[in-house]
Design a protein around this nucleic acid. Structure first.
Length: 283
DNA sequence: GCCCAGGAGTGTG
DNA sequence: CACACTCATGGG
């Protein structure tokens, strides 16, 4: 089935390619394909219009895409508030269409546990390994992210043979610590409680808890701090220190939309990686 | 070959 | 609380 959506502002290349999510593939300018829930989705951006093809299709396909791209976020308003930060202000014009995505909670949790101390191509590869082996088929060989129940059936030895490194033990243990019911229960908690409960899970520390809060549970006040953000803070704000200190700083500075600020800084920092441009001022 | 990766867990001062 | 060390391994 095919349908059109209007989502503005939107930059699909920035949103799906910046490294916040791992299963989308870029087929061309503003043209992306990937599994979303039980659908294989192809999206082409024509300005603010998104042309979507979903297979096998269904009534919920439209809602799936709207939710994933957080169509109801008032991004211009979020940016107006964040632009009060004099460091962010000059760069925001370059990321007007970069939106936070909303992932499935379970997929997000596993993905970011796998993402510890690995680069993005490898993260994508590990996720594809799990999906191709244990995911439900959507259409011709493309498989959904595996359910908790299916992943729980994988033995420790089998998991250890998948090229996940020490993360294999985390995932195996994670499956035994949490189930679908407890995941949905987490969704009802306040941000601070959610964060504390996530940190109880194997393989989940400060950073992963914040990623899962932000991209999985949609808590825009979450501010994940990885090596890139640490560098950005040191360079742009002259801020260093332990996680808790940096998180408090981010929370005070960016407030309820800290997650968007984080994604702008992350995008900028990764862009600069092999000598790219810098969008934000050094103040 | 070398360096690094969207860190977490554990032990120590 | 703050730091040091270890963990397993592929991508650039």
């Amino acid at each position: 089935m095919k349908f059109k959506l209007e989502i503005a502002p939107l930059n699909l290349d920035q949103t799906l390619g910046c490294g916040q999510t791992f299963r989308w593939r870029r087929l061309g300018d503003g043209l992306w394909e990937g599994p979303l829930g039980d659908q294989l989705v192809r999206m082409a951006q024509r300005g603010s219009i998104l042309e979507v093809e979903a297979r096998p299709g269904g009534k919920h396909a439209r809602r799936l895409v709207q939710e994933h791209l957080r169509a109801s976020d008032d991004v211009p308003e979020i940016q107006r508030k964040l632009a009060k930060d004099t460091v962010l202000a000059p760069g925001i014009a370059h990321v007007k269409g970069l939106r936070i995505v909303k992932m499935d909670e379970w997929e997000c949790l596993v993905s970011f546990v796998l993402a510890t101390y690995a680069n993005i191509p490898r993260i994508a590869k590990m996720i594809e390994t799990l999906s191709s082996r244990y995911g439900e088929e959507i259409v011709n060989g493309i498989r959904a992210f595996p359910t908790h129940d299916r992943l729980s059936e994988v033995s420790r030895t089998e998991m250890a043979g998948l090229g996940l490194g020490y993360r294999a033990e985390y995932i195996h243990s994670l499956c035994r610590t949490i189930d679908d019911e407890s995941v949905s229960r987490l969704g009802k908690l306040s941000f601070s409680s959610l964060r504390e409960e996530l940190k109880e899970l194997p393989g989940v520390g400060d950073k992963v808890a914040d990623c899962v809060s932000l991209f999985g549970f949609g808590r825009l006040e979450a501010f994940p701090i990885d090596v890139h953000i640490e560098r950005a803070f040191a360079r742009l704000y002259h801020k260093k220190g332990p996680y808790s200190k940096l998180r408090t700083f981010a929370s005070e500075r960016f407030g309820e939309y800290a997650g968007y600020a984080q994604e702008y800084l992350f995008y900028n920092e990764r862009l600069r990686a092999p000598g790219g441009a810098c969008l934000f001022s050094k103040k």
